[in-house]
């Protein structure tokens, strides 16, 4: 039996998303395919799979990514699907604890990658927002009021950047003591 859940989770909360998907897997609902804010689950034995996600360094169809997926496959990791550059994986719990990254350095690199992406989206929306509101100011063209939407999105992304920055800072501080 399949079950589809629609849920809005932003990229900076990927760790919460991962935790939620693992809770579902522990209950016997393993992620089987993904879309934008859409999650499809299949019934499995409770705890049969563990889920992880990652923002890829390249697009999912880039040769680098294909090589990477092949490497993951050799370690028992099944690629469930991708949404933009986000990749979702699962692995049998019997193969041991499953994480994509096991040390601070690689975790930090991953967080910085996400931070850049969110910053790019924030910047793009800021530009679009200001530009459209300026047009509205000049021409009173109501459609240009959509610029407000862009600015709201930009503000949301800034909140995300702040959250990501805190995560990076925590890792950095720990890094002064532990590897």
């Amino acid at each position: 039996m399949r079950k589809t859940v629609h849920k809005v989770i932003w990229g900076w909360d990927f760790d919460k998303e991962e935790a939620w998907l693992n809770e579902m897997a522990a209950k016997g609902l393993s992620l089987i395919s993904v879309g934008l804010f859409r999650y499809d689950f299949e019934e499995t034995d409770p705890g049969e799979y563990q889920i992880a996600l990652e923002l890829l360094a390249h697009g999912p169809n880039h040769p680098e990514s294909e090589q990477y997926f092949k490497f993951l496959e050799e370690t028992g990791v099944e690629q469930i699907g991708t949404v933009f550059r986000w990749a979702y994986y699962r692995r049998k719990t019997a193969d041991g604890p499953f994480e994509v990254f096991s040390d601070k350095e690689s975790r930090m690199k991953h967080l910085i990658r996400i931070l850049w992406l969110v910053a790019l989206v924030a910047g793009g929306n800021f530009y679009a927002g200001v530009y459209n509101l300026w047009i509205f100011h000049l021409w009173h063209n109501p459609i240009s009021l959509l610029g407000i939407f862009s600015l709201v999105l930009c503000a949301l992304c800034c909140w995300g950047i702040w959250k990501l920055w805190k995560k990076i800072k925590t890792l950095k501080d720990e890094g002064q003591i532990y590897e």
């Binding site: 990652e54 993951l72 041991g96 994509v100």
Partner: peptide
């Protein structure tokens, strides 16, 4: 020491 696949690949 368990090396996760992403960490290992990057290294």
């Amino acid at each position: 020491v368990r090396l996760a696949a992403g960490t290992l690949y990057g290294a």
